Amino acid sequence: MDSLDKDGTIQNRLVRIYGRVQGVGYREACVRRARARGVTGWVRNRVDGSVEVMLQGSSEQLADMCNWLRDGISAAVVDKIEVTEMQPPLPRFDPFNRLPTL
């Protein structure tokens, strides 16, 4: 899947996921999903129990990832997500990775 929109731009979203999303394999599943969809960025746990995800890709790829993040995996319980559109310039992330807890 192409990571650029039709006009050649890369979209960026910072997503916070709240609920029971730590200690259940959510980050690892997120990495697998993002890599399979050609999305770049990173995912990390936050000390408040949430998970934070930086996504880069086409608008279609990011919509797909945000929908997946809302549902997560069966072991997770997602209470809410917050999506923030990030304005360029941002560094290009490649590949999608897990980061240490912040």
Rank of each mutant, 00 (worst) to 15 (best):
M1Y: 10
M1V: 15
D2E: 10
S3A: 14
S3H: 15
L4I: 07
L4C: 10
D5L: 11
K6A: 12
K6V: 12
K6L: 13
D7C: 02
G8W: 03
G8F: 02
I10F: 06
Q11Y: 01
N12F: 10
N12A: 06
R13D: 09
L14N: 02
L14W: 02
L14D: 02
V15D: 01
V15E: 00
V15P: 00
R16T: 14
R16C: 06
R16H: 13
R16P: 06
Y18F: 10
Y18K: 08
R20V: 08
R20H: 15
V21F: 12
G23L: 07
G23P: 05
G25W: 01
Y26D: 05
Y26S: 12
R27Q: 03
R27M: 02
E28T: 08
E28D: 14
A29F: 04
C30M: 08
C30R: 06
C30W: 04
V31N: 03
V31M: 11
R32Q: 12
A34M: 06
A34W: 04
R35T: 09
R35F: 05
R35N: 14
A36K: 11
A36F: 14
R37P: 03
R37K: 13
G38V: 02
G38E: 00
V39Y: 01
V39I: 15
V39N: 11
T40A: 11
G41C: 03
W42R: 04
N45K: 01
R46L: 13
V47C: 10
V47Q: 14
D48N: 15
D48A: 08
G49W: 07
S50A: 12
V51C: 00
V51P: 00
E52R: 00
E52W: 00
V53S: 00
V53Y: 03
L55V: 09
L55I: 12
L55E: 01
Q56G: 14
G57T: 01
G57V: 01
S58H: 10
S58R: 12
S58C: 13
S59E: 15
S59H: 12
E60S: 14
E60L: 09
Q61D: 10
Q61A: 11
L62V: 09
L62W: 15
A63M: 04
D64K: 07
D64N: 07
D64P: 04
M65R: 09
M65E: 15
M65H: 10
M65C: 14
C66L: 07
C66S: 11
N67Q: 15
W68S: 05
W68K: 04
W68Y: 09
L69H: 03
L69P: 03
R70I: 05
D71Y: 09
I73D: 02
I73A: 10
I73M: 05
S74L: 10
S74E: 10
A76G: 00
D79C: 05
D79T: 04
K80W: 02
K80N: 06
I81L: 04
I81H: 03
E82A: 06
E82C: 01
T84E: 14
E85R: 13
E85P: 09
M86F: 04
M86H: 03
M86L: 14
Q87H: 12
Q87D: 14
P88N: 05
F93I: 03
F93C: 13
D94G: 09
D94Q: 12
P95F: 11
P95M: 06
F96C: 01
N97A: 05
N97D: 07
N97S: 12
R98L: 06
L99H: 08
L102S: 11
L102A: 09
L102R: 06
